[in-house]
């Protein structure tokens, strides 16, 4: 930016255009700057700080405890059995199960949707509708569908003469059952992203492939998949982060929002919520959010590395 003409007087109306533009830029940004500084950035530092205190909102004073909260967390994670340990394990399971299922399913659907013309738009909308529904509302619907005695799924199983399943009431089946809701709800979003990615692939590539007589699988493997890489990486990261932050479905689908049975569905964020707002161990809960932040940061950095790598 070059400001050459000198202002003759210091009055506002005699400023150069460039200077006035700078001033206006700051004026326009004033409220967003205050907002980000105070609502987004300062609280992040505050969370770090809280994690070093035995922070209890009921108390008049908050004693400084150094890294004790992190030590406690480490101890909990190394116990033979603890809710916190279960929460971290489950969260990893949600990511490891949920992300691949979500992406593969969405990619398959996108490829098929990309192929059809008739009914293409209504199908797209239908796939997308779950994404706009309230997770809490729809989690309750799923909870009812899973109800062992009168829920839809067991009614169907019975019609097909298959054994009845406990679903949410079984420590083994509960986590996949919760996951099914998340996949159901989130798939439409991934499908749209894939469709947009597919559209970015120049048609000439496919034409060339066809001339070469490449099979459908080869076309997919050597053209579609590599060229879809940005969308895949983007979704991979986005879905990983969203599974790391699981909360609402578990609260709505488990008895009294406890993340049961036997802590089989509880998540890190649910632990944070309970520790902070029901047990008032806000320092300890903050330490957990800091750990979550670090994990998400690492995932994001890996994303940046992948996406900046050029794709040929």
């Amino acid at each position: 930016m070059i400001v050459q003409s000198k202002p003759k007087r210091n009055g506002f109306f005699h400023w150069t255009v460039a200077r006035r533009k700078v001033l206006w830029a700051y004026i326009f940004l004033a409220i967003p700057i205050v907002f980000f500084a105070y609502i987004r950035i300062y609280p992040a530092f505050f969370a770090f700080q809280m994690s070093l205190y035995d922070y209890n909102p009921l108390a008049a004073e908050q004693p400084y405890v150094g890294l004790e909260n992190y030590e406690d967390l480490w101890k909990e994670l190394n116990k033979r059995r603890s809710v916190t340990k279960a929460a971290f394990q489950n969260t990893v399971n949600y990511v490891l199960l949920g992300v691949p299922i979500q992406l593969c399913l969405a990619l398959a659907v996108a490829l098929m949707l990309n192929e059809i013309r008739f009914l293409s738009t209504p199908y797209r909308i239908l796939f997308f509708l779950p994404y706009v529904t309230s997770t809490i509302a729809i989690a309750w619907v799923f909870r009812m569908l899973y109800q062992p005695q009168f829920g839809f799924f067991n009614v169907m199983l019975q019609l097909l003469s298959l054994p009845q399943q406990p679903f949410l009431n079984s420590p083994q089946q509960a986590l996949p059952s919760v996951l099914a809701l998340v996949v159901w709800q989130g798939m439409g979003f991934s499908v749209i992203i894939f469709l947009a990615g597919l559209k970015q692939i120049p048609r000439t590539y496919y034409e060339a492939a066809e001339v070469d007589g490449a099979s459908r699988w080869h076309t997919f493997r050597y053209i579609t998949l590599p060229l879809l890489n940005p969308s895949i990486v983007f979704l991979l990261v986005l879905q990983t982060i969203s599974f790391l932050r699981m909360f609402a479905p578990v609260v709505a689908m488990t008895v009294q929002g406890q993340g049961g049975p036997l802590d089989a569905t509880t998540t890190v964020v649910l632990r944070v919520y309970r520790e902070a707002f029901q047990s008032f161990n806000m320092g300890y809960a903050s330490a957990m959010t800091v750990v979550l932040f670090v994990v998400i940061l690492i995932v994001t950095i890996i994303q940046l590395r992948f996406t900046t790598r050029s794709i040929n």
């Binding site: 969370a47 809280m50 944070v272 959010t289 994001t300």
Partner: peptide, 30 residues
């Protein structure tokens, strides 16, 4: 617009995306 600090402010805004809201819940509550 071009103005001093533009890059810094923009990056600061975007950096806030890296912080999961869960981490801010407790400070917001306080």
């Amino acid at each position: 617009y071009q103005f001093p600090g533009k890059r810094f402010i923009f990056i600061a805004f975007l950096a806030s995306l890296m912080v999961p809201t869960e981490m801010l819940l407790i400070p917001w509550f306080i």
